[in-house]
Design a protein around this nucleic acid. Sequence first.
DNA 1: GAAATAATGTGACCAATATCACAATTTTTA
DNA 2: TAAAAATTGTGATATTGGTCACATTATTTC
Lengths: 225, 225
Amino acid sequence: MDNKCNFCTMKSKAAEKLTAKESEKLSANCVTVKFKKGDSIIKQGTYSTNVAYLRTGLAKIHIQGPYYTQVVRIVSQGNYLGLPTTFGDKVNQYSVTAVEPSEVCFIDITTFRKLLNLNSDFSNQIILELCKSELESYQKCVNRTQRHIRGKIAGVLLEFADEIYRSEKFTLSINQEEMGNLVDASRESVSRVLSEFVRDGIIVMEGRNISIVNRQMLLNICLNG
Amino acid sequence: MDNKCNFCTMKSKAAEKLTAKESEKLSANCVTVKFKKGDSIIKQGTYSTNVAYLRTGLAKIHIQGPYYTQVVRIVSQGNYLGLPTTFGDKVNQYSVTAVEPSEVCFIDITTFRKLLNLNSDFSNQIILELCKSELESYQKCVNRTQRHIRGKIAGVLLEFADEIYRSEKFTLSINQEEMGNLVDASRESVSRVLSEFVRDGIIVMEGRNISIVNRQMLLNICLNG
DNA sequence: GAAATAATGTGACCAATATCACAATTTTTA
DNA sequence: TAAAAATTGTGATATTGGTCACATTATTTC
């Protein structure tokens, strides 16, 4: 029997705790699907029967709000996409869409539950990740409400550089509208602030290619508005 | 040996899954402390060595933001207060303060971890709660950013009536400043909106005693601004 | 129970940022 | 590669809700 999950080079931290035998069980109950940019991975309101793991790529989690769709967060490769929505409710409470070409592993929820019960290292790791992501969401909430637009945009740029692309140069895969949505600002404001950063020599921008030139300044704007 | 946790009338859903023997272990490694209104239960920045469970009372979770302290959410009795902050990091990432007289059980984290590993029903319940609270925090985030003040205040009033006091009449235990902080509005705006609701016959207010008179209207305002 | 302190109510004014309108540019599609 | 569609840039204007100032009312404290 093949054991692709065991030899996967992009295992989640939790999956690393699994034994070869458990990995085998995982492999047998997990399908990997490719998504193009813009494809819907999880759709709010539909039944959820699988845990989704973003093996490669980049995705956004978004919720239908009363007036428009709100991007709640960006998830980068190596993270679970749908734990809360899969465990918390029978129906998906949010949508997930690929922002870059992505590979997603859909794990049968019964299998996933079995693994949680079988291997406490695995379940501890999952608990840890849930905790971290809750903390992160609290922090995001504070940033969203307390910072001014300049600070918030500086913050996302740093997040892209540090957490997602791990480089001072990167190509944005979301447009300014979506970026505004992510930090709670209008498309126009995003445009204005980005131009301002370019004018002040903090970043260089060619289309959607961005390089951070003055990281110190960006950090400063992020922290002090 | 006494087994107070086993006979506790305010067990958490998770603790209900424990066997008598496991409960005994819990009892031996758990202290219950009373807090007065306004007392600090968990302090952001200090080391966390215990899981906190709100046995009775009401508490608020707040985070120190760049400009002021932000109330992230209200936790009612029967819920864990500090899972994310205890598991996610060695240092508490948020503060918790009693909003009403409260009893909190502090559970030794090593014991808690042991129980997680020992009893998978227990750990599944904890995972479920973490998932739900993450979903809730996404929803809160959307409400905070997309709704107007009237809608947000209508929302909190309904939350108090439905989730916390389970009655159309209740006594607010937070002041308008804190309420504003909870929905991201200034003290003055809260005052204005509440007066407006009273004027329009949607609620009756005597000091901090509130009764919801026109629930339909309140719901309507909550949903449509 | 008087004084001090905290909480609330209310008007006037202000600021940040949304919205609108349209031009310019880039990307996609046929 | 021309046309269509999507994205971005930018000025003018509007609006929500914050801030300030101060009056009024409750609540604590001594």
